[in-house]
Amino acid sequence: MKYTVQIVGVGGQGVLLASMVLGNAAMKEGYKVAMSEVHGMAQRGGSVLCTLRFGDDVISPLEAKGNADLIMGFEPAETCRNLPLGNKNSVVVMNLDPVYPSMVAAGMEEYPKIKDLIASAKKVNDNVVTVEATSIALKAGKAVVANAVMIGVVAGIKGFPLKKDVLRETLKENVPEKFLDLNLKAFEMGYEYSNKA
């Protein structure tokens, strides 16, 4: 068994935390883990990509194009930008909260309509799960736990090889004590959303 998650988003969205939670959970389940992260200049508001691979015999920190089992998209435009990392059978989780690039904010470039982004992903993939993680996070109590919502959504995906309770435990270990309940609530809400979707 080998499983690859490509986590994509924008610096500051919690992509690295999500990758740590998934990676540590995979380790706890006895899998080998190889990951690759983006640090440095790209973190200044640029696109962020994190590759997580786990399974019986993984060693490469990178994955081939098209070979992702799951694309975990924290931002809709970044999800679409990175579709070539997966194939038509991959699962694509797509958070619908946009983060506007500086040129869009300045009115010099346009941000596409969210419904067009969804349509473009659905055109090439039958397993797109869209989620409004920030609005779920707000219902849980705070916008910043949107990444815990995302981890919950992934935990609820049919066939995702890591167990929900292991992910939940690992999330607990990786968030500050005072935001623990908030994160767990967000995780559960994401999980429920995913089950219904």
Partner: peptide
């Protein structure tokens, strides 16, 4: 060499650029 599944095509929607920028 390992066979890889065919990758999804690049999105047909025009995506905005996202270069690193001053905060």
């Amino acid at each position: 060499v390992a066979k890889f599944p065919e990758a999804m095509p690049v999105s047909d929607v025009k995506l905005p650029s996202r270069p690193p920028t001053l905060c």
